[in-house]
Design a binder for these strands. Structure first.
Lengths: 148, 148
DNA sequence: TTAGGTGCAAACCCTTTGCTTTCTA
DNA sequence: TAGAAAGCAAAGGGTTTGCACCTAA
């Protein structure tokens, strides 16, 4: 379940711990990509992330980007989502609770919301089916107030 | 929103009406693909659908499949979903209410559930943001009872 | 008869992988 | 110094598109 009311964490420490635990190494590129993605608000697709990272280091490639984002998702610092268009979008999960998305199919804007009642019902539903929840997503597609 | 308690509909009539409305044509292939997909229970990916359709007509190609499924989604007879693996899955929506999914990340089994309370809260949430809901999906990932 | 549809192959797009070089620990 | 990581390019996998031929209306 959630990271609802935890103390703030230092994401770099989380990443470092994860890397050490797996016998991997901290590199300049990993640090850079983590800093860029974790400090960004909103949902970045891989091209947007690529652009931001390249501004600070023009030599980073897509492969490194994908490999590092995977690492960040693994240790819970980033969540990934698919919003209809074929490509994945990534969002910092640092120091913020779980939330869901309203996605406008017209202008592609994304409205976030938190709803603890829904979260609680989801937990109930899992218990009913003896299902061990790892993560979940809820997406509502439609028209935002400006596009109706 | 929902098709909660409607009278049964004849899917072929719905499809025909949609086709006429758009100035398109009913073809042997469209009828075949609709019959196969709508009579199947559970979630088919494109290869599984391809296999079933080819059994009845070995000449149908992937392009026709994709184009027809798109048509079926448009007129509400089929829903599509992405369950983590990169490919889309399709499910008949004929004469059955909206439901959500528990997805086991170990054995890939899918448990379906309906929860009217959650549905109601989703509607509330949309109203709160003046958002016009077209469709929505909720997916809970984790371990089923056999994989824990 | 005439758009629209089909089927094939090629193109596309996003993501992953292989391999050589570079760099962390 | 050993082995992990980066960067490039090429491969992969799912989906869409272009085009010549076919077919429903």
């Amino acid at each position: 379940m959630g990271q609802e009311h935890q103390d703030p964490v230092d994401p770099m420490e989380v990443l470092t711990a994860h890397i050490v635990r797996k016998g991997l190494r901290m590199t300049r590129q990993r640090r850079l990509i983590a800093e860029v993605l974790l400090n960004e608000v909103g949902h970045l697709n891989i091209d947007e992330l690529f652009g931001l990272v390249r501004k600070k280091d023009p030599h980073v490639g897509y492969a490194t980007l994908y490999r590092t984002v995977k690492l960040l998702v693994e240790c819970g610092l980033v969540t990934s989502a698919q919003f209809g268009d074929g490509s994945a979008r990534f969002e910092s999960a640092v120091n913020r609770p779980h939330h869901d998305h309203l996605i406008c199919t017209e202008c592609a804007c994304i409205i976030e919301f938190e709803n603890e009642e829904i979260e609680a019902l989801q937990v109930q539903e899992c218990e009913k089916h003896n299902f061990l929840m790892r993560h979940h997503k809820m997406e509502i597609y439609g028209l935002c107030i400006n596009c109706q």
